[in-house]
């Protein structure tokens, strides 16, 4: 039996860790809704005295005294880039993962190893070469250029994750389906895909969050509203001598909320512990 003081100690530890993780986030959210004067106040004001939406109005260009920032444009760019790169990464991840899990082919282990090794290279270290190539072929400041880079970033990961999920599904299930009258294709969609769904959903959410939050590469490859994403757009708030903290935080909230909502929608799948009861052992 755990002693009660031990339990409290553990809870206290968890509390500290969670506080360290959550307080900055909370601070951002509160700052997004506070008056500009409160930001620099000393001693700091924790809870805003007056909750206001002025910061959001300001960045959306709805108030007179401040010039807006093309948030909507950035948002759309972010959506297009993240969604496209996620959908493609998941599709390719499914095909690659299935191939690695199910087929024997020459050079399979080497191919897999290289895919994984590509993950060990920090993306930012490739930014200069990518920048040079992209500027030659005219991909700088295009959605497509960013999507391509994010695909390279995400695909090894989606393949690896989805491969693991397909591996868990016994081969005999697909064989049973084929004996039951399915083509290999039908066996995949009716049996293996539904069973790997939670894995594919997790791969999707990870790929989406990577693309949605990525800053370093996007800041190199995007220039204008044609392709600038939300995280890059945050830099619009820093002028030479000042930083518009409330505006920046308001925009940060705009970035966080869709990611949070999506994660909540998908989390059911992430947790859904599939019971492989159909197969013994």
């Amino acid at each position: 039996m755990e002693r009660s003081w031990q339990r409290w100690l553990i809870r206290f530890g968890v509390f500290i860790v969670m506080a360290i993780i959550c307080v900055p986030g909370l601070w951002i959210v509160m700052t997004a809704f506070r008056d500009n004067v409160e930001v620099m106040a000393r001693p700091p004001v924790w809870i805003p005295e007056r909750w206001t939406l002025d910061n959001f109005r300001a960045i959306l260009g709805l108030s007179e005294n401040q010039q807006g920032i093309p948030v909507v444009r950035y948002f759309l760019n972010s959506v297009v880039i993240s969604v496209t790169s996620t959908v493609l990464a998941v599709l390719i991840g499914m095909m690659g993962g299935y191939a690695f899990a199910r087929y024997r082919f020459k050079g399979k282990n080497v191919a897999f190893l290289w895919l994984m090794l590509s993950r060990t290279v920090p993306g930012i270290s490739l930014s200069l070469p990518v920048f040079m190539i992209w500027s030659r072929v005219g991909l700088i400041d295009t959605d497509f250029g960013v999507i391509l880079v994010y695909l390279a970033l995400n695909i090894p990961f989606t393949i690896w994750l989805i491969d693991g999920f397909f591996r868990q599904i016994p081969l005999s299930l697909s064989e049973a389906a084929q004996v039951d009258g399915c083509t290999r294709w039908q066996a995949f969609w009716k049996i293996e895909f539904p069973l790997a769904k939670s894995g594919i959903a997790s791969a999707g959410i990870f790929a989406f969050l990577t693309s949605w939050n990525e800053f370093a590469l996007a800041s190199q490859l995007t220039r204008t509203t044609a392709s600038k994403t939300l995280p890059v757009g945050l830099m619009d708030f820093t002028a030479q001598f000042t930083v518009d903290w409330t505006g920046m935080c308001a925009m940060a909230v705009i970035i966080i909320v869709p990611a949070l909502i999506l994660t909540f929608i998908v989390q059911k799948h992430l947790i859904a512990g599939l019971t492989f009861g159909g197969v013994k052992g």
Partner: peptide, 25 residues
């Protein structure tokens, strides 16, 4: 292909479809 042979098979590990009810299986 297996589906064209009009056979059925019982596997050592049963290979029941875990996401379907007995009826659906």
């Amino acid at each position: 292909a297996p589906r064209e042979r009009n056979i059925s098979m019982v596997f050592q590990n049963y290979a029941l479809y875990p996401h379907m009810t007995v009826k659906e299986n």
